[in-house]
Amino acid sequence: MDIVSILSNAVTQAVGPLAIVYCLAAIGLNLHFGYTGLLNFGQAGFAAIGAYGLGIAVKTLGLNLWLSLLVGIAAAVVLALLLGIPTLRLRADYLSIATIAAAEILRLVVRNSELSKVTGGSNGLNGYGRDFDKLNPFNNATYGFGQITFSRADFFIMIVGWIVVAIFSLLIWALIRSPWGRTLKGIREDEDAVRALGKNVYAFKMQSLIIGGVIGAFAGFIFALATSIQPDNYGTELTFFVYTVLLLGGAARIFGPILGAIIFWAALSLTDGILRGLVDEKIITFLSTSQVGQVRYVLVGVALMLLMIFRPQGILGDKREIAITAR
């Protein structure tokens, strides 16, 4: 078993484009779920609408990169409004069912073959990223050191991606320390109490849904620019993994999503490398190499359960909070 290569793979994954995608989606979800208590199970839909907004704007409307990003953002705002207007007045669990269904509707519609001229149907879209590639200031074929190397394109998207992560983390930090953020936290604890104090809870929830949704759309942008747009990347499991990321790092913590995404991808990569190594060396015989990738997701599910049961406040949880929520 090549320990060095397993470890460098883990590092590569932990800071790579997919970790950024999950991190951004989790930052948006953190505003929804962590700070406002909104049970949004449609974060995959926000990522999808960002990605498709960008892709369609470039390919069908022929817009440049910047305008296309604006289209993606606008699409996410519209989705948030469409979802929020009816469901934000509902109980938390109704919101979860409505949002998961909306995300699924979106996926089924874009992958539908009747729309393949615009959305690419089940094949998705590609070839919309030329403007972005042109911006790439890096010229070497690869960047990195030792076994941790990234292609020129990956390196560029990573730099851009982590800058976006930093900006949004800062934004959330600034918002949450304000009276606006305090009201969101109040709504999370008990929205009727906040309503009884004269706050328009509905408006606050809508603002939270829109901002978190737009951050989710940025996750879609990074996903789209790092690879291609595939409808099935935006299934319900993406949302579930993002919840795992958020709960792993710690909901209602600024660094929760970042830490969560890094650990999530490092752990996925490590378990894959180690299990595969054990299979190769015939230490594990009941699994084939093709099953290793699947076993990892069993572990994700178990991890999500154990986290929620034993440490719902995540790695960055506050001790005083634990004292209250420990039951």
Binding site: L175, S178, R182, G186, A193, K199, A252, T325
Partner: peptide
């Protein structure tokens, strides 16, 4: 009683104040 458990006592109180400028999203930052 609807005490907002994961807000501190002083935060609970601050939440009650009316017409807070910082509660407007455009001012929050």
């Amino acid at each position: 009683t609807k005490a907002l458990s994961l807000l501190t006592v002083i935060e609970n109180m601050q939440l009650g104040a009316k017409n807070q400028l910082g509660e407007k999203l455009r001012n929050a930052l």
